[in-house]
Amino acid sequence: MDLRLKDKVIVVTGGAKGIGEGIVRLLAGENACPVIVGRNEADNLRLVSDLKSQGLQVGQVVAELTKPEDNALAVTQVLKRFGRIDGLVNNAGVNDGVSLENGSYEMFLASLHKNLIHYYLMALHCLPALKESKGSIVNIGSKVADTGQGGTSAYAASNGARNALTREWAVELLPYGIRVNAVIVAECYTPLYEAWLQTLPDPEEKLRSIVSKIPLGRRMTTAEEIASAVAFLLSDVSSHTTGQLTYVDGGYTHLDRSL
């Protein structure tokens, strides 16, 4: 299926690694022009170099999105270099374990900056360009908003808010033809996931336990599978889809895990 993404300029926050990298690679392969917005220039350039060596379009902007001013600067740089924005993928974030029992106001607020506030700010600053292009927004979310996890209050709150903002923006932006959707992730193996597993006493046993509870195929979701859903929602092929939370999780969130 032709997703008709050729030459579309799509901003992907946290696009250098993990799920973000999967999204950037797939969009580039669809002949779009993904633009990585990430804090680590070396990581950004590694992926840019690889994709350009394949003759694909890609760009990058260095930004620390926990700093509000960097969000505006990142969007300004994208527009200066590429002249337009056709899509925004809000993806950057981290399950940082800021809990109720062991957290603090300062830790909670810092986590919101890592996981939520830049979702709003990137959409805010991209909005004029998205109005011009009648583009679309895809927010990446987590099943933690639905299921809870324990020990991660700020991340759970951020993901609940991401879901709410997805539907709020879908309503607010209807007059401009801007569609807003979310892709909700459960168990997707990424470098951050691996790092979390390695903090546990028996990482291999924990991974086996998690995989055994994923109904479809008893396996982790891949970054490529997340990316495929994102690309579909960004594209005009999904032209009558807005305000939707799409779970790409092998049935983990909603199906009976005793299946």
Rank of each mutant, 00 (worst) to 15 (best):
L5H: 00
N31L: 11
S136E: 06
N95Y: 11
N71L: 06
R208M: 12
V185T: 04
K17D: 14
M220E: 05
D249C: 09
S136V: 05
R84W: 07
S99I: 02
L233F: 07
V248R: 01
E106G: 00
S49R: 13
L174I: 12
R162N: 14
V58Y: 05
I10P: 02
G93F: 07
T13K: 11
F82E: 11
A156F: 08
A28W: 01
R84G: 07
I140N: 09
A145P: 01
F108L: 07
G217C: 09
P191F: 06
Y119H: 13
R167K: 15
A182Y: 06
S258C: 10
Q244D: 09
V75I: 15
L174V: 13
L26S: 04
I137Y: 01
D256T: 02
I226C: 10
S158D: 10
S212T: 01
K52Q: 15
G18Q: 06
A229K: 06
P191N: 08
L259E: 03
T166Y: 15
A74E: 01
G14V: 04
V9I: 13
I19H: 10
V24F: 06
A110F: 01
A63Y: 05
N31S: 12
V237A: 15
N44P: 04
D43C: 08
A227C: 06
G59S: 10
F232K: 08
N139T: 14
T241Y: 14
V248K: 03
T253N: 11
T152H: 08
A227W: 00
L79H: 03
L65K: 06
D256C: 05
L65E: 08
G15H: 10
Q198V: 02
R179E: 11
G151T: 05
L216Y: 08
T242A: 09
T222R: 13
D146N: 10
G103H: 00
Y189K: 09
T242I: 08
K143F: 07
V89S: 12
V171Q: 13
I23T: 05
T222Y: 15
Y155K: 00
T166Q: 14
L200G: 02
G55M: 08
T190F: 12
Y252A: 10
K134T: 11
T152S: 15
L197P: 01
Q198W: 07
